[in-house]
């Protein structure tokens, strides 16, 4: 009883302490989220005003629509391209840079530098690289002899290569992030584990698969979850490089582009945009939970 009354007495103080962060959370996270969920069952005029409810069925309509399903499939393909390749490259570079060689600090700086590059800058850079007439790739004669698509119609303008090209720019832009995380993971592996395996006769590949990979598995899981969530939310690359195109295939219209893009089919419909955004949120939440559950058992978090 005494405990209960003292707890009751603590409530005002507790709320006073929690107040500031609660206020921020409510204003900038929970309220917009609730507002978006609500907006998702409304329809508005072109200015985004005079919204009225058309019922929760709007979510089902969106899920069943070809546009949403197409965008979701493009997004999944984008993630399937960028996450495994980005992770493999990041791990590869980090393992290389982990060797105690002269000048490695310089390469570490280079490899991590893309973390300081914004999506806009990275995308513009890739736009110049991939540009079909004056771009760097287009002016490598032997290369466009093998791949004529580089010049005609251009990697970003061909429906078969556009998503891959955007994917490569995204992989490049995220590489610094992956590299830094994996490098930190590698440095936490005790040196003696490698030495012990080395004395026992394990070669480089054996040590990598038996010692390094299992011991950095928490880092790899975290990186995979973050990269996947980034891939599902990638927007700037599509906006700057392809504008969701090439049309009519909409080869790079991902879910985020469908929500937000300037040539999206629903760009003037706030209600539909909100509905798609909420669905993306639910999908990402489910995906992250799945990743943690699925890989969680195989991840070792130290003794």
């Amino acid at each position: 009883m005494a405990i209960k009354t003292s707890r009751l007495r603590d409530i005002p103080l507790a709320f006073a302490m929690l107040g500031p962060s609660l206020l921020v959370l409510l204003t900038f996270v929970l309220y917009p989220l609730g507002k978006a969920v609500w907006l998702g069952q409304q329809t508005c005029d072109v200015q985004g005003k005079n919204c009225k409810s058309v019922g929760w069925g709007q979510y089902t309509t969106v899920i069943k629509s070809d546009q949403f399903q197409h965008a979701l499939w493009v997004t999944v393909k984008f993630a399937l391209i960028t996450v495994p390749i980005g992770l493999a490259l990041g791990v590869g570079l980090a393992v290389l840079a982990d060797k105690q060689l002269r000048g490695m600090r310089f390469f570490r700086t280079i490899f991590s530098s893309t973390i300081a590059t914004s999506v806009a800058v990275a995308s513009l850079m890739w736009l110049f690289l991939l540009q079909p007439s004056i771009g760097v790739l287009a002016n490598l004669g032997w290369l466009h002899d093998i791949f004529p698509v580089i010049k005609e119609p251009g990697l970003l303008k061909d429906s078969g290569t556009a998503l891959w090209s955007v994917g490569i720019s995204s992989i490049w832009a995220n590489l610094g992030f992956t590299f830094i995380l994996v490098t930190a993971g590698l440095q936490s592996v005790p040196k003696e584990m490698h030495e012990s395996a080395y004395v026992d006769g394990a070669g480089g590949w054996m040590r990598f698969t038996n010692v390094t990979l299992p011991l950095i598995s928490p880092t790899l899981l975290f990186t995979t979850v973050v990269l996947t969530s980034r891939a599902f939310q990638a927007y700037g690359e599509m906006d700057l490089l392809t504008n969701g195109g090439p049309i009519p295939q909409d080869s790079t219209t991902t879910v985020t582009y469908l929500i937000y893009g300037s040539s999206s089919i629903i760009k003037n419909n706030d209600g539909l945009q909100a509905a798609v955004a909420v669905l993306l949120f639910v999908i990402l939440l489910a995906l992250s939970a799945l990743q943690f559950r699925g890989f969680g058992k195989r991840v070792h978090y130290g003794s």
């Binding site: 003696e192 030495e195 011991l215 598995s217 070792h300």
Partner: peptide, 11 residues
């Protein structure tokens, strides 16, 4: 070789 930290593979 036996190490001070034992260097056992935790996984």
């Amino acid at each position: 070789m036996v190490f001070q930290s034992y260097a056992l593979y935790p996984h």
